[in-house]
Structures are given as structure tokens and as C-alpha cells.
Amino acid sequence: MAPPIRLTLPGTLRYRAIAVRAVAEAARLVSGSTQRDPNDALAHDVRDPFDTAVVSAFMEIFNNVAIHAYSRDGEASTIELTITPDADQIMIEIKDHGVPFDIDGVAPLPEELDEYTLPEGGMGIHIAKTMLDEVVYEPGPPNLWRLRKHLSAPAQQLRNGSSK
């Protein structure tokens, strides 16, 4: 098994794209997906369902850390990212040294959605929890998010070229 990918970034939104790119490429290692245009290194090319779930969830958690733990543009410490892509799953740990987040205070989405009840906020944690198999938050210091997504059996078969 390859060692984890480790990345330490300033905890601001300016560095978000670097973290997202690293996670997207790590997800590709698990899913076996390829970019539409492999020569376009800057493309935001996320189509595979596994990649979509991992990248979508990670973006929300990174946003959450930069905004809530480090108050967006305020004084920020670091975000320590550990990405472990395995044969059938990816695990991502996101550690920060900021203000703990009240994950239990996140309101659920409205039961019935229409043009009047469409939410304009509070969707990030819902996206992460729904997209992934595991979202664990341990308030610190340091605060730790642990994310896990398994590759589905059919996706594993496709990746291994053994689909029937």
C-alpha cells in the first residue's frame, strides 16, 4: 500500500483550489477515471460518480474549515490534509487548529422544497454527509474531520475491467 498523501496548506480560501485538485486526483486513483482532456491540467473535470462524491464533499468541508474555524479572511493557521487512496476506498483527514464547529447545530433541509423554501445556506454539511459513507467530526484542538468513501462493487468491476 502506498503511503498517504500529506499536504499542509494555509487555512484560507486562496489555497482551496490546490487542495481540491489534490483530492480530485487522489479520487481518480481509486475510481480509475480519466480526464476528458488529459492535456488540460487546469480543467475542472469531475464526472465519475465516485470522484463527484469525494470532491463535492471535500469542497464543503474545506469551505467549512476556512470560514468557521479560521473566519474566512481572518488570521489563519494551517490545514493539514492526509489523503489515503486505497484499492476500494478513499479516506481523507482534515485537521485544523481553529474554532471548533457545532456540527449538531446544522439544520436539516426543508422536507418540501419549492421556490419559497429553497435554502440559501446550510447545505454544505448535508452534501458531505449524503455523498460519503462516513463523515466524522472530532472537535479539538486540533479539530479533525474524517471522511470516507467506498468504491461500489460495480465501479470496482468496471475499474478492473471485469464487468459482466
Binding site: 469542497m59 469551505n63 429553497l118 440559501e120 447545505m123 452534501i127
Partner: peptide, 17 residues
């Protein structure tokens, strides 16, 4: 549009409403 997060969704909801 290749990628969107909840902030992007919120902007579109704001426009729609």
C-alpha cells in the same frame, strides 16, 4: 459549468427567488 459547491448553489437560489 464543471463544478459547483453550496455557495454557488446559494447564488443561483438567490437569483431564482
Amino acid at each position: 459549468l464543471d463544478l459547483i459547491d453550496s455557495s454557488g448553489v446559494a447564488a443561483l437560489v438567490k437569483l431564482y427567488k
